[in-house]
């Protein structure tokens, strides 16, 4: 139990930014009930950089989507920045997302008819500000991710790495506290993946963002401050994992 605590909660003043308590997600399929997430407890402090790993189907995306507010828990509590987001109405939750979360997808998910600039500008359209302020914010975000020279390019005219940079610019342009990424380097070559992970570290360290990414790749996970493993909807203790990996320790029946 103690390892659990040191692993999942980081000591810092004040309550953690994200608090998951007995967080559960279930799907009903006919008579079967699928439980991608089972009574999960997790604290994430502000400024953390967390990598989620685990086999396919272990619930990583489900957890990420719940934290990003694009899915709703079936049970438990999910308190982020003092707000229990599972109680928010659909439109209040949308407003909450537009202020608090930036989401980076594996396949970038840029709007193909819009230029890089317009894609980054999209989330700002939801906030009341002058066109000039919007322009400045888009400019800053695009410079930060290193694609300021690609304003007028359409997504199809960009490489995967460049598209992901645009997507990151879109995720940070509203200055959210939390940035989540679902296998953000999963579709990139080694070099681009490293560059994107460097950028993620920079967002965490320079801008103080709280990052949670899902990854299959140990190299990418190594950039994070800590790594958590999911299996069948539960967090696996590091000790258990280590024990499993050690070939000489016999498995208990």
């Amino acid at each position: 139990m103690t390892t659990n605590h040191t692993n999942h909660r980081t000591n810092s003043s004040g309550p953690p930014l994200i608090q998951c308590r007995r967080l559960t997600k279930t799907y009903k399929k006919g008579d079967n009930t699928i439980t991608p997430l089972q009574e999960l407890d997790l604290d994430v402090p502000t400024g953390d950089f967390l990598a989620l790993m685990g086999p396919s189907g272990s619930g990583k995306t489900t957890l990420l989507n719940l934290i990003a507010g694009i899915d709703r828990p079936s049970g438990g509590n999910l308190i982020i920045g003092g707000t229990d987001i599972s109680t928010l109405s659909r439109s209040k939750l949308a407003d909450w997302r537009s202020v608090n979360v930036g989401y980076v997808f594996q396949l970038y998910n840029l709007v193909p008819v819009l230029t890089a600039y317009e894609n980054v500008e999209l989330p700002l359209l939801l906030h009341s500000m002058s066109a000039k302020d919007r322009h400045e914010k888009v400019q800053t975000a695009m410079q930060l991710v290193g694609i300021a020279d690609r304003h007028d390019h359409y997504p199809r005219q960009l490489s995967g790495g460049q598209e992901q940079r645009v997507a990151i610019a879109r995720a940070i342009v509203t200055d959210p506290t939390i940035i989540v990424g679902d296998e953000p380097t999963g579709d990139l070559d080694q070099e681009s993946a490293q560059a994107i992970m460097d950028l993620m570290v920079q967002l965490c360290e320079d801008l103080g963002k709280t990052l949670i990414i899902v990854t299959h790749d140990a190299k990418s996970a190594a950039y994070a401050k800590r790594t958590l493993h999911l299996e069948k909807g539960r967090l696996i203790e590091a000790a258990v994992l280590a024990a499993r990996r050690a070939p000489l320790v016999p498995q208990e029946a």
Partner: peptide, 16 residues
């Protein structure tokens, strides 16, 4: 469908 899901993720309300 997916594009609208992206917009919602960005914070676009259903009504918008």
């Amino acid at each position: 469908i997916k594009e609208h899901a992206v917009l919602q993720t960005l914070g676009f309300r259903s009504s918008l």
